[in-house]
C-alpha cells in the first residue's frame, strides 16, 4: 500500500495521498493513518494532494466524511495539473498557519523541510499546525495555539496553548525564554500552569523578575518543567 504523508506548506497542512489504488484502499489506509496520529489533526483544516488520481464527486464526499470523523476540514484537493485549485469550501478564512485573509503566518524554507520558523508574535486566535518542529521568534500570546509533530521552541514568552509531539512523540520537548502557557501538552499528556498564589490573583501574569528559560519534557509519563541548563 502506498504511503500517506503530511507536509507543512506555506498555506498550512497538506496531506499527500497515494496516486494509485482503489478508493476503498485509499479510505482504509487513510483511516489507519489518522488513527495513529493522536490529536495532531484534531480541528485541522487541510489541503489534500492527490497527484494523478481522479476522484468523482461522491468519492470526494466519502473522503470529507472520513476526515470529519477526526474533526478535520477539507479545504481543497490539489491534483498534479492543478496544484492550487479553488477552495472546496465557501468562506474559507484560514486556520492552520494561515492568517485571516490568506496571508501566510509563517514561511517554510522548503516544503520538504521539517522545521518551521515563525518570525513574529502569535496573537490570540492564530493557530500554527505543523508536522515537524516549530520555532517562534517572538511571543505566543494567550488564545494563540501551536500544534507540532515535533518540538516547540519559543524565543520569547509562551502564554498560549502548545502541543508538542502531537502525533504521539513522547520525546518531544517545549522550551521558552519564559514558559507560562495556558496549557501545555506533550504527546498525550496535558499540564496546566500551577495556580498563582492568591495575592497575585487578578494579575495578568506574575512578574517575578528575570526568569530563566525553561524546558518541558515527559518523564515517566508526566510533564516535567526544568530550568534550562544547556546540558
Amino acid at each position: 500500500m502506498a504511503n500517506i504523508e503530511v507536509k507543512g506548506g506555506r498555506d498550512g497542512l497538506v496531506l499527500v495521498l497515494p496516486e494509485t489504488g482503489t478508493q476503498g484502499q485509499l479510505l482504509a489506509s487513510l483511516y489507519h493513518y489518522l488513527s495513529t496520529k493522536g490529536d495532531f489533526f484534531k480541528g485541522a483544516e487541510i489541503w489534500v494532494e492527490i497527484g494523478q488520481r481522479r476522484m468523482a464527486e461522491g468519492e470526494v464526499a466519502q473522503l470529507r466524511e472520513l476526515l470529519s470523523q477526526w474533526d478535520v476540514t477539507l479545504l481543497a484537493l490539489r491534483t498534479a495539473d492543478q496544484p492550487r485549485p479553488a477552495p472546496a469550501l465557501d468562506g474559507f478564512e484560514g486556520g492552520n498557519g494561515v492568517g485571516e485573509g490568506g496571508t501566510p503566518l509563517a514561511t517554510v524554507s522548503a516544503e520538504s523541510s521539517d522545521a518551521l520558523t515563525v518570525r513574529r508574535t502569535l496573537r490570540g486566535g492564530q493557530i500554527i499546525r505543523h508536522p515537524g518542529s516549530v520555532t517562534v521568534i517572538g511571543d505566543v500570546n494567550p488564545g494563540a495555539e501551536i500544534v507540532a509533530g515535533g518540538d516547540v521552541v519559543v524565543w520569547g514568552v509562551l502564554r498560549g496553548v502548545v502541543h508538542a509531539g502531537a502525533m504521539g512523540d513522547d520525546d518531544a520537548i517545549v522550551c521558552a525564554l519564559k514558559l507560562e502557557p495556558t496549557q501545555l501538552r506533550i504527546s498525550a499528556q496535558i499540564a496546566i500552569s500551577p495556580e498563582e498564589p492568591k495575592a497575585k490573583r487578578g494579575r495578568l501574569w506574575q512578574r517575578i523578575g528575570p526568569r530563566a528559560p525553561e524546558c518541558a519534557f515527559l518523564q515517566e509519563g508526566r510533564i516535567v518543567v526544568e530550568k534550562w541548563s544547556g546540558k
Binding site: G99, E100, G101, T103, R123, G124, G125, Q126
Partner: peptide, 11 residues
Amino acid sequence: DRIIGLLEAAD
C-alpha cells in the same frame, strides 16, 4: 490582541 492580529493580516 486578536484585533491586532487581524490588522496585521489586513496589512
